[in-house]
Simulated scan of single mutants.
Amino acid sequence: MTDLTAPALPRSLLVTGASTGIGEACARHMAARGWTVFAGVRSLKDADALKDGAMGDLRPLILDVTKPEQVEAAVTTIGTALGNKRLSGLLNNAGIAKMGPLAIQPLDDFEAHFSVNVFGLLRVTQAMVPLLGGDPARQGPPGRIVTITSVGGKIAAPFLGAYTATKHANEAMTDTLRRELAIYGIDAIAVGPGSVRTPIWNKAEKDNEDGLYSGSDWEKPLEIFEETMLKGGKTGLPPQKIAEVVEDALSSRKPKARYAPVPDKLTNFTIASRLPKRWLDAIFIKRFELKKK
C-alpha cells in the first residue's frame, strides 16, 4: 500500500546545451523550482560557471550530443542517480546556427547543423526514452520531451536556410514522437521562440568574420540580415521568459502541443505565418535588398 505521508520524490530533468542562453536559463530555473536538473555542458569550465550562484539540485555533466559515447555515459549517470524511478523530462535545447546563402554555403556547414540540431537531438531522445517511460521496470509517471525549435521552424528566413531546415525537421520530429510515444504515455512538446537575448547570433556573426561571402552577390543583403539578427539578440525576450514557458510545458496538467513565445507575436509570427508565401517573399526581398538588379 502506498504511503501517502511519504514525501514526493523531486522531479528530474535533462537539459542539453546548458552552457549559455536558453539552456542555462532553463537549467537554473528548473533547479530553483525544486527539480533535479542534469545539465549537459561541453567543458568543465562551463560546468563550473553553470554551478556558480545556482540554486537547488543542479548537476552539470559533460554532454556533446554529437558524441555517442558521451550520450551513453549520460544515460548511465542519470539512470544510476534515478535508481528505479523515471526521468520526468528531457529538454532538447542544444543547437547551432550559421548564417549564409544556401546557394554557396559550404556543405560542411550545412551538415554540421544537422549533426547537432537533428541527429544529435534524436540520438539523445532515443537514449532517454527508456528512462522517460519506455522501460517498464522503472516506476513513476512517464516523462515529457520538450524541444526548443524556433520561429524558423515555421517561417524560413533568407540566410538561415540550414538552421531553419533543421528547425522544420525538429517540428516534424516532435509531432511524430508525440504520436508514437503515446504508447508509453510520454508527451512531446515544441517551444518555438522568436528573438531571444542569447549569444547564438554573436557566434554566428563570428563564423562569418573570415569573409567567406565577401564579394558574393549576397554580401550586402547578408550584412543587413546580420545587423537585424544581432539587434534581435539584444532586444529580444530574456532567456528567463523561455524558461518559464518550458516550466509550463513540463508541469502543466494539459500542456499545449506547441508554444510560441515571440516578441510582438501578432506581427512577427501570427500574421507572418498566415501570409501567402509570395507576399512574404516580397517582404523579405525588400527588407534585405534582394531584388534582382
Rank of each mutant, 00 (worst) to 15 (best):
D109M: 12
S251P: 03
E72Y: 10
G134K: 12
K203M: 14
I145D: 02
L50R: 02
L212H: 09
L212R: 13
I183H: 15
I189P: 09
G40S: 08
D64K: 04
P68L: 12
G120H: 00
S115Y: 10
T77Q: 08
D217S: 15
K286E: 12
F159Q: 03
A169K: 05
E244Y: 02
G215V: 07
R33T: 04
N170Q: 15
V118I: 15
T5D: 14
L87G: 02
H29Q: 05
V146D: 04
M173C: 09
D109W: 15
I189K: 12
K291C: 00
G79N: 11
D281W: 14
P142F: 10
L91G: 09
G83K: 11
I285Q: 03
P263M: 11
G161M: 07
A162Q: 04
S150M: 05
A39W: 00
T147P: 00
G133F: 09
K98R: 15
S12K: 01
T228A: 07
Y213S: 02
D281K: 15
K241W: 11
L107R: 10
A243R: 05
M30S: 05
K293T: 12
G185P: 08
A31S: 14
E244R: 11
L131D: 05
T270G: 09
G211D: 10
W35P: 04
L250A: 10
R42H: 01
D281L: 12
L63I: 06
A47I: 06
R274I: 13
R86C: 11
I96R: 09
I62D: 09
L181R: 01
P261G: 09
K67S: 11
F288I: 13
R86L: 11
G83Y: 13
R179N: 15
K234N: 07
A31G: 11
D52I: 07
A27I: 02
P130A: 08
D57I: 09
Y163K: 01
L280R: 13
P7T: 02
L160P: 03
I224Y: 09
D109F: 12
K167N: 04
T77A: 07
F110E: 05
A260R: 10
A6H: 02
T80G: 03
A282T: 11
P199D: 13
T176D: 08
F110I: 10
A94H: 07
T66W: 02
K45N: 15
E247D: 13
K203D: 14
K220I: 11
P130S: 08
F269C: 04
G34W: 05
F159E: 00
P68G: 08
F225Y: 00
K85H: 15
W35Y: 06
R278H: 11
L212K: 10
S115N: 15
Y184F: 15
V116R: 03
V191P: 08
K167D: 01
G17Q: 00
